[in-house]
Simulated assay, not measured.
Amino acid sequence: MRRRATTRVSAAAVLVAVSASLLVGCGPGGPDTIAPFVAETVPADARGVVVAAQADDLVLCEGWGSADETGDVAFGCDTVVDVMSMTKQFTAAAVLRLQMLGELDVSDPIGTYLDAVPEDKQGITIEHLLTHTSGLVDGLGDDYDPVGRDDLIDAAMDSVLQSTPGTSYAYSNLGYGLLAAIIEIASGTGYEQFLAEHLFGPAGMTSTGYVLPDWSRLDVAVEFDDEGNPRGRPIDHPWAEDGPYWNLRGNGGLLSTARDMFRWHLALRGDDVLDDAAKAQLFEPRVREEPDDTYYGYGWVITDHDDEPVAWHNGGNSHAYGELARTPDGSAMLFWTTTQAASRDGWTFEDLGPELTDGILQRLL
């Protein structure tokens, strides 16, 4: 499966040795070989978690290594992790949910919801933001700069476009920040509140969000640098009271668990969150990510594995990295993440990640 990284930073790391697993058996090369494959593929000193499913069946949910700096807390299916840029597919689903509710249309120009849009940006539509074809730059500052919603909108309106809206693909975290703002304006509620009510609640996802879930600090995994030094938890970074500041909100930073990501897969197989028409929009390949033979849909990269379509996205920051993949029809799904992206021993999951994802998909499909 050929695909390009679409993370906030360049890719890196994953996982470690032995915790709990749930297996649904098949023949040689099938799902029952996923756990041994992962054990052989990931470095022995990695830390993280993986979950894999065939249709409604949980094939594997397994953690490796320690989730904290003491070594006393094992990684598991309910360890809370940063899903990073994989947040974008939740934002895209929220936009389509609002469309189902009649509150917006993806063809709407952003000026329908945002004030004082200058002439050069009046042609930007919601779909352009969803597909990274707005012409906006990737970002306008650090993730943790104390930027409010209005500050982000004003800065985006004052920024110089890279291209005419709708003419070319250029990955933009800023664009997904504007989508989070539009979700708030169109719905009349907060970004996280809307996701909790319309996505996470119906999906049974009790451990996904920014600040609303009732998890303890010890539930959240510590991240590590390539020397193995602890660098704190995602919630230790400077955030506003209601979640991350707006350079990160909507395009990254959501926290979740492997078990909740499996629940999200189940929700996308049903119609409690999105109907069939909305899911078809979500997974439609729309814009080619040149020079690769992959396409961006709405919050997902659409690629293929042995000629079968696969929706994929990765996420990364300075210390963590992960990948999410599923077939658009929901016949297979996987999510894995690590809280240590690289090691001084020389391994990184920029190198190992594609092998891990492709190997699991090969055993699921």
Rank of each mutant, 00 (worst) to 15 (best):
R8K: 02
S187M: 09
P118K: 08
V273H: 06
R3L: 05
R3V: 04
S172N: 00
M261G: 07
W300A: 03
D115Y: 09
L140H: 02
E192Y: 10
L129M: 08
V50D: 02
E184Q: 14
L22V: 15
Y295A: 01
G315V: 00
Y176I: 07
G209I: 11
T41Y: 00
E241P: 13
D72V: 14
E103M: 13
V59M: 10
T33Y: 01
P238L: 15
I110N: 05
T91F: 09
V301S: 00
G30S: 13
A196D: 15
D236T: 04
R249I: 15
W312N: 01
I360A: 03
R269P: 01
R149I: 12
L22W: 12
G141T: 10
G30K: 03
P165S: 05
Q162V: 09
D68F: 09
H132R: 01
R4C: 03
D145F: 03
F224G: 02
L195K: 13
R2D: 12
I124W: 07
L152H: 02
K88R: 07
V117R: 01
V51M: 10
S343C: 01
L23D: 15
P43Y: 05
Y245C: 05
P309T: 04
A277T: 08
Y144Q: 09
A342C: 05
A221V: 06
G228L: 14
L136K: 02
Q99P: 10
P165A: 04
E192M: 13
A196E: 13
L361Y: 04
D236A: 03
Q162G: 15
A180M: 12
N229F: 08
S134Q: 00
T338M: 02
P146D: 07
D275S: 11
R288Q: 13
M261N: 07
F75W: 15
R149A: 15
N173C: 11
A342S: 13
S168M: 10
L22P: 14
G65C: 11
V81Y: 11
G30Q: 08
G359Q: 01
S318P: 04
A94T: 13
L365D: 08
H128F: 14
H265V: 04
L23T: 14
W264E: 12
S159G: 02
G71F: 06
V81P: 15
Y245D: 07
A67N: 12
R363N: 01
F262D: 10
W300T: 03
H313D: 00
V310G: 09
G76M: 11
P36L: 03
D292R: 02
G30V: 07
S172M: 04
L174H: 03
D214E: 14
A277C: 01
R8L: 06
L178Y: 02
V273D: 09
G299L: 08
V38Y: 01
A17M: 08
L152S: 00
H313L: 00
F37S: 01
D105Y: 08
A156W: 01
V287A: 01
A203G: 10
G243F: 15
D272P: 03
E284A: 15
V59T: 14
M100V: 10
L212K: 05
M1G: 09
